[in-house]
């Protein structure tokens, strides 16, 4: 299987930790991926908000480059990118008129033959639980982990075709594989407001705050995410939320690849966990102490 890798802009910038940890984990798993040559931004939420054609054409360029380079599958670790790639793929596959319009502009053919996977889909379906399990060297027993899915991994279900949209379990399954305890809580799929993170920080802090306090209440030590936008809100804005609501949260937020990496025996530095805003030292010490 030839696997294309679509990093997206966040993984090269504010969420570089995601890419660092992802590449490390895949190295351990001995899985090769190849970055789509000269990829461009998927247009994120801005494109679909005000210009439908752009919201299809921008991802389509990446899909077409991948298809024309002989790839069959694309891994898009960013939940927003995978959502945009999947949506464009769905529309191009079901609307011939639109496909013609877009491919004419791109001046490249595209047959919508590509499969797009988000990070969790990739880990569970392409890598497989057994494979992951066989690499676990440092079980995370006793660590309570809340999986936060947000919106874009599971919604809308007719396009994402992934997990149960109301009660997703895929990330919790991965958490359980590492030996950690998956914490159930009702706000798993509530939105953090990412689209308006810069333009409506008050609204976003209200939404993100609800999620974080709910997780805290359910006794988690740690939050895992599979989306850089969720991460930015939950991690980068956490201090601000604590100030706004005058209540401490202190929940480290890490990427699912970082959690797997820890269980694979990789060091926090290798996984760039020190790149997060919320200090994770306490829980990391607990993990490292237990493995010694």
């Amino acid at each position: 299987m030839k696997l294309a890798y679509y990093p997206g802009c966040s993984l090269k910038g504010t969420s570089f930790e995601y890419e660092v940890s992802l590449l490390k984990v895949l190295e351990v798993l001995n899985i090769e991926i190849k970055e789509i040559p000269d990829w461009n931004c998927c247009g994120a939420s801005a494109a679909h908000s005000i210009n439908h054609n752009l919201s299809v054409a921008l991802p389509a360029r990446n899909l077409a480059i991948a298809e024309n380079n002989g790839f069959e599958n694309v891994l898009a670790p960013c939940a927003a990118c995978s959502s945009r790639l999947k949506t464009a793929n769905y529309e191009l596959g079901s609307d011939d008129v639109l496909r013609k319009k877009i491919t004419d502009s791109l001046d490249m053919p595209y047959n919508a033959s590509l499969g797009v996977s988000n990070m969790l889909e990739f880990l569970l379906n392409a890598v497989g639980k057994e494979n992951i399990k066989s690499h676990i060297k440092r079980p995370l027993n006793g660590i309570k982990v809340a999986s936060y899915y947000g919106c874009l991994l599971v919604r809308p279900p007719k396009i994402m075709k992934f997990d149960d949209p109301e009660n997703p379990v895929s990330m919790d399954e991965l958490v359980s594989l590492t030996g950690a305890t998956a914490v159930d809580y009702p706000y798993k799929t509530d939105c953090c407001g990412a689209i308006n993170s810069l333009s409506k920080p008050d609204v976003v802090m209200a939404l993100t705050g609800k999620v974080l306090y709910n997780i805290k209440e359910h006794g988690a030590d740690l939050v895992v995410v599979a989306c850089p936008l969720c991460h930015s809100n939950l991690d980068v804005r956490q201090r601000e939320i604590e100030r706004k609501y005058s209540e401490r949260i202190g929940l480290p937020v890490i990427f699912i690849t970082e959690l797997l990496g820890l269980s694979f025996g990789l060091s926090p530095e290798e996984l760039a966990i020190d790149g997060h805003m919320v200090n994770a030292d306490k829980i990391l010490q607990k993990i490292l102490a237990a493995s010694r």
Binding site: C9, G13, T14, N40, A44, A46, I50, L54
Partner: peptide, 27 residues
């Protein structure tokens, strides 16, 4: 909600000129 409108426009301008998002410039 002018700020939201501006954000979307600035975002797409950034994509237009770079092909990718340069976060510092965008912000």
């Amino acid at each position: 909600e002018k700020e939201i409108q501006v954000f979307h426009k600035v975002f797409l301008d950034n994509v237009k000129s770079n092909g990718r998002i340069f976060e510092l410039e965008l912000v």
